[in-house]
Write a protein that binds this DNA or RNA. Structure first.
Length: 592
RNA sequence: GCGCUUGUAGCUCAACUGGAUAGAGCACCAGCCUUCUAAGCUGGGGGUCGCAGGUUCGAGUCCUGCCAAGCGUACCA
């Protein structure tokens, strides 16, 4: 148990005892069983912790809050860690923690080391976190990067708070988009083999498609070449010629399947799929993002999962047929309208496999499902929740977290991004420009649902204005101090420092002690709220407190007792910075 | 039209989920900065929390109605 929990628990016990006393005296109703809420104060003149219990209970106790607070204070037993209890404001009870108790945080951090801040509030609950899950139709772009940084930070936080976390990437290796990719590769392959053709406007136009086609040439030679006139015979018009681009690309897909045969088509398809998937895996790994499982959508088709899931829906009377398609009655379960699960051409929709996928997740026994999606998919939430309900599950098990896209800036200038013509900024490009640490930091710096501006210039600048730099530099600065120790002929005597912690009486020092003690609370909150930006904010605060302390005081002073006490304090800062940065996937350099 | 999200200082964003005087960083202003543990330091001004109602001891936070922006509103994924 952390020192913070000890303190908070102690205070809660005191309040609880006071309440019992008042109940015994008939001042409060015996049936009352309020949840006691103790929180940190914002203003140090209000002490260290405060409770609003008197304000909450005043009405039912038919008394005014200040009077009730006063009675509670009088009924409160004495305790070592509390130096003073005050009635304040409208009826707050403020607790002042004894100075000696404040110092304990330093020995706690030294004892617990990289375990400091971890907790068991998750109590082993099984949580599945599914994130990124971008279609393997091309490289990851900067939008996916934010989902990756956010998802992996959330997962790390959940692990740190005692959840049993399973990270997963859903691979859309089936479906129409992948067919379009396969067809795009094949057409580029035909070009590479000397055919001249007009590339469909709805096909994937990125340069990487040519590379994939080149692979196909090297592996397969001219096995898949068909004459232009045969390939394009009797096709509807493309959009540029006044036709429909969707119909056109679909007929080209059909043509590819027909000319290549099932086996040949699968070969072309898999060349694209495996290469792109490998690229995505490598990209994410270099970004510090790893998974327990890459879950194949195709496997859901192959093993009958989709059929099974739909069978359950059919049994429960949630499906019907209309216009040659099979519909799911999601409108009865909170969705705007019903949704097609089997198209009139007999193919499953993406939604059908997603129903099966979520069914599969539930079958695997997860207590909580977290889906992290781009905000543009928000309209999808209602139907997936409807599906869970229809499958007989509790829709509240599913938490969909939305990530807004980031706008890239280079100083004052907005970086243009367009997904048309494949001219987007990839995650790889971003990483090579600003580096992994800055990318991860900036991505998670804002609340995920907040649109964010990502300033590439700021992210790479070596100045205090760059928050990544500022936090990492605080860590490096501590390291630098410890490097200078031997140069000055000192050694770090931890025991001597611990014995003299009360010498840390400067204002900057007590501020740091409080900030350090807050770390476990921040982790807990960031984890349970899925808000890693709270951790970033905290680390920036800790860094600020440290830098101002550094500017105000010498650490390597003559006095051995004060010197070692200060060294213990700053090595605690170092430890907490490391612990926090690790959770965010950001390095803590020893020198900068 | 309907739905989701967002709206807080000139700019980018916080605010312990209903608490006390709404906070940071840029930018701006004023001092300091021959020495120090390189990436300056210290202080200051700046707010109708989109608007209007409501709920209660108490609202940036909750409810209602407007206004604005982004996204969505496929038998695409």
């Amino acid at each position: 148990m952390t020192i913070r929990n000890l303190m908070k628990k102690t205070l809660e016990t005191l309040i609880s005892k006071a309440l019992t006393t008042l109940q015994a005296n008939g001042i409060l109703d015996n049936t009352l069983n309020p949840t006691i809420h103790v929180e940190r104060t914002r203003d140090s003149s209000h002490g260290d912790f405060a409770t609003n219990i008197a304000l909450v209970l005043a009405k039912s106790a038919k008394t005014n809050p200040r009077q009730l607070a006063q009675q509670l204070i009088e009924a409160m037993p004495a305790n070592d860690i509390v130096s003073k209890i005050e009635l304040a404001g409208a009826g707050f009870i403020n607790f002042f923690i004894d100075a000696n108790a404040q110092y304990q945080i330093i020995s706690t951090i030294h004892q617990q080391g990289n375990q400091f801040g971890l907790s068991q509030i998750g109590s082993g609950k099984k949580v599945q976190v599914e994130f990124v899950s971008a279609n393997p139709t091309g490289p990851l772009h900067v939008g996916h990067g934010r989902g990756a940084a956010y998802g992996s930070a959330v997962a790390n936080l959940l692990v740190a708070t005692g959840f049993d976390v399973h990270k997963e990437y859903y691979v859309n290796d089936a479906g129409r988009q992948m067919d379009i990719l396969a067809t795009s590769v094949w057409l580029r392959y035909l070009e590479a083999c000397g055919e001249t053709l007009v590339f469909p406007c709805n096909a994937y136009r990125g340069a990487y498609v040519r590379d994939l086609a080149q692979n196909l040439v090297s592996n397969q030679g001219k096995n898949f070449v068909h004459l232009h006139d045969i390939v394009f015979a009797n096709l509807p018009l493309d959009e540029t010629d006044g036709g429909d681009k969707e119909i056109y690309i679909d007929s080209l897909i059909a043509r590819a399947k027909q000319l290549l045969g099932a086996e040949g088509y699968r070969t072309v398809f898999d060349v694209g799929l495996t290469a792109i998937l490998e690229d995505i895996k490598e990209d994410l790994a270099e970004f510090g993002v790893t998974y327990h499982q890459w879950f194949s959508e195709r496997s859901l088709m192959d093993d009958g999962s989709i059929e099974n899931a739909l069978a359950v829906l059919r049994e429960n009377n949630h499906l019907y047929e209309k216009d040659g398609a099979i519909w799911f009655k999601s409108s009865e379960l909170g969705d705007e309208k019903d949704r097609v699960v089997i198209r009139d051409n007999g193919h499953y929709t993406y939604f059908a496999s997603d129903i099966a996928y979520h069914w599969n997740k539930l079958e695997r026994g997860f207590d909580v499902l977290i889906d992290i999606w781009g905000a543009d998919h928000h309209g999808y939430i209602a139907r997936v929740k409807a599906a869970l309900t229809a499958l007989g599950a509790d829709e509240n098990k599913l938490h969909v977290l939305l990530v807004q896209f980031a706008t890239l800036w280079r100083g004052e200038e907005k970086v243009q991004m367009s997904t048309r013509s494949g001219d987007f900024v990839t995650l790889r490009e971003l990483r090579s420009e600003v580096g992994r640490d800055a990318a991860r930091f900036f991505y998670v710096m804002r609340r995920s649902e907040q649109h964010m501006d990502f300033d590439l210039e700021l992210a790479t600048s070596k100045s205090n204005e760059n928050p990544v730099f500022y936090v990492q530099y605080a860590h490096a600065r501590v390291c630098s101090v410890f490097r200078q120790l031997p140069e000055k002929g000192y050694i770090h005597n931890v025991e001597l420092g611990m014995a003299n912690l009360p010498e840390l009486s400067a204002e900057h020092e007590s501020v740091l002690l409080t900030t350090l003690a807050r770390y476990p609370e921040v982790i807990e909150r960031a984890a349970t709220q899925y808000e890693p930006h709270l951790l970033i904010n905290y680390l920036r605060e800790l860094a600020t407190d440290f830098h101002t302390y550094y500017n105000a005081h010498q650490f390597l002073v003559e006095s051995a007792t004060l010197r070692n006490a200060r060294l213990n304090l700053i090595s605690s800062v170092q430890q907490v910075l490391v612990n926090g940065l690790i959770l965010l996937g950001i390095s803590a350099p020893e020198a900068m």
